[in-house]
Structure formats: structure tokens, C-alpha cells
């Protein structure tokens, strides 16, 4: 009885108050410590720089895709009504992708690409320009763009799944949840982009007239744009 009413002191204390302080400290500490135990060590500078670059280039890419479909829709929707729902569906998905990366960019405080106005203009002109040539040329443009984007997303996924095993404070190693969710997002978007690629091929993209010239030219442009958007 008497034993229970006093706090048990294992070490002999110098002052009477120090035992009080000790019980106070222990009552708060475990929760804080267990929280900290579950946390990862901070991202290295290279990892943070890589994520920064991923968000920036993906945002710029989805912005481009959004505007390419806008250009195609603008030209094709009235002339070829049978393409309207197809284009609308792909465009809607691109708008969703674009919005996702926009919110990531604001939340993670990543700077957008400096050339955003140029990407907008260029993408719209590319979409509308190929659509003016013929609907098949527009589909060839889609095919080329989605090929480059799909490949680029795959490269990112490779790096995100390989290079982000971070140590936790309790010694275990795992991927931080936000990197996981970014990977999931990119994986889903990659699948949707490749679906667009198939749609484009189904709609006779291979029958576009200067097929090689169009696809290879657009692939080159896209690669250059990706390279630039990653950096500037």
C-alpha cells in the first residue's frame, strides 16, 4: 500500500524535485519517441533534387499533352464528329493528370518550368497543326508523343523504385509514403498514356502520310522539350 503511493525511484536522487521532473518527462517522451522512431531520415540532396525535377518535368509534360489535345479537339471536333468522344476522353484524362501535377507542384514547392508559356503555345500549335494536315496525322502525333512520354515515365519509375529506400530512425529500411504515392500516380498515368497510344494506333495513325517524318520529328521535339523542362 505504502509502496504504491510513492513513485518508484530506481536511482538515488540528488534533489527531491528531480524525481518529479523524471516522471513528467517519461510521461511525455514515449509518444514523441515512438513517433520519431517511425520517421525516415531526411531525403538526401540528390534525392530531393531528383523529385524536384520529376515533378517539374511531369507537370510540363502533362501541360503539353493537355494543350496538344486541346489543339486537336479545336480543329477536329466539328469536321470529324466520330472522333469527338475519343478525343474528349483522352483530353479529360490529360486534364486530370495536369491538375494532379499542378497541385503537387504547389504543395511540394517545386518551381514550374520557366518556359511554361512556350510549352503552352508550342503544344497547342503542334496539336492543331497536325490535325489540320489530317486526322491520321493528328493520331500519329499522339502516337509519337505518348511513346516518348511512356518511355520517360518508365525511366522515372525505375529510379523511384530503386533509389528511395530510406532508413528509418528505428533502423528498418523502407520507401517513404509520399514517394510511394508519387510512384503509384506515375504508374497509373503511364498506363493511361499507353492506352492513348493504342487508341491512336487503332484510329489509323500508321496511315498518316509523311508518317516517318511526323513521328520521328515529333519524338525529337518531345525529347528536347523533356530535357529542357527537367533543367530550366
Amino acid at each position: 500500500m505504502l509502496r504504491n503511493s510513492f513513485p518508484r525511484i530506481s536511482k538515488r536522487q540528488f534533489s527531491r524535485l528531480s524525481s518529479l521532473r523524471a516522471t513528467n518527462a517519461t510521461s511525455k517522451e514515449p509518444t514523441k519517441r515512438s513517433q520519431n522512431e517511425n520517421r525516415h531520415f531526411p531525403l538526401s540532396e540528390a534525392q530531393a533534387a531528383y523529385l524536384d525535377r520529376v515533378v517539374r518535368v511531369d507537370q510540363a509534360g502533362e501541360l503539353g499533352a493537355d494543350y496538344i489535345y486541346a489543339g486537336q479537339y479545336f480543329v477536329l471536333s466539328s469536321k470529324y464528329p466520330h472522333l469527338k468522344p475519343v478525343l474528349q476522353h483522352m483530353w479529360d484524362q490529360e486534364i486530370h493528370h495536369h491538375k494532379t501535377f499542378n497541385s503537387l507542384q504547389v504543395k511540394k514547392r517545386v518551381r514550374p518550368s520557366l518556359f511554361t508559356p512556350i510549352w503552352k503555345l508550342g503544344a497547342f500549335v503542334m496539336g492543331a497543326g497536325t490535325a489540320v494536315i489530317s486526322p491520321q496525322a493528328a493520331m500519329a502525333c499522339t502516337e509519337a508523343v505518348e511513346t516518348v512520354i511512356g518511355r520517360h515515365y518508365n525511366q522515372q519509375l525505375r529510379c523511384l523504385t530503386n533509389q528511395f529506400d530510406l532508413k528509418k530512425a528505428n533502423g528498418s529500411v523502407s520507401v517513404p509514403p509520399e514517394v510511394n504515392s508519387l510512384t503509384e500516380t506515375i504508374r497509373q498515368f503511364r498506363d493511361e498514356e499507353l492506352e492513348h497510344l493504342e487508341t491512336a494506333i487503332e484510329h489509323d495513325s500508321k496511315k498518316a502520310v509523311p508518317y516517318m517524318l511526323l513521328t520521328e520529328g515529333i519524338k525529337g521535339i518531345c525529347k528536347a522539350a523533356v530535357w529542357t523542362a527537367e533543367r530550366i
Binding site: N36, R39, H40, F41, P42, L43, E45, A48, A49, L51, D52, V55, K108, R109, V110, R111, A169, P176, P177, E178
Partner: peptide
């Protein structure tokens, strides 16, 4: 150079 800002609650 601008760094990605990770979720503060997941990291030490």
C-alpha cells in the same frame, strides 16, 4: 536550385 519539400511529418 529549388528543392522539393517533403512531407514534414514523415521525416525526422
Amino acid at each position: 536550385k529549388r528543392m522539393y519539400h517533403a512531407n514534414a511529418s514523415d521525416f525526422l
